[in-house]
Amino acid sequence: MAAPESGDGNNGAARMVTLISSDNTRFEVEAAAASLSQTLQLTILDGGGGGGDGIPLPNVDSATLSKVLEYCIKHAPAAANGGAPNATAVDRAELERFDNEFVNIDQSVLYSLIMAAHNLEIEGLQSLVAKKVADMIKGKSPMEIRRTLGFPDPTPEEQAEMNAHMLEYGWAYE
């Protein structure tokens, strides 16, 4: 999604918007990058977020927003090319390397990113973090999954229920 042309002498200077995190930190970022968020896209198209206004994001703290914007800035050029049909293999490999590195993070950060990607509706980031969690789940037993994701230990009743459900798909545990 290209930034809409605005009247302010657009000779190469990209339009900027300001986003305000829940803890009141202001982030100035190219409109094209912020527009990866479906939630923000309409506001930005309507000319919001420019000048001194800024778009408040009450659900996203500054640490998370900074991480989200890192993703958006990296992915905005490819997204502007409509999925980057002209991208070279090198470009794609670089994005993939970035993505792998990007989700190599603490689980608490990962959780905040999932929530932010969900609230801001950033499709690519949603897929990326979902894939990361799915990879953490694959090949594990129910108890291992619970431990990996930091669930509390099951109560005896929950344990009994888990065992009963495990019998239903016995083939999955071979």
Binding site: I114, M115, I137, R146, M162
Partner: peptide, 21 residues
């Protein structure tokens, strides 16, 4: 968000995930 994650799992992991909670 959770469904988006589970959707990516192969059948075997999905059957196991059914027992998580």
């Amino acid at each position: 968000a959770l469904a988006g994650i589970l959707r990516l799992l192969p059948p075997r992991s999905l059957a196991v995930s059914r027992c998580v909670c």
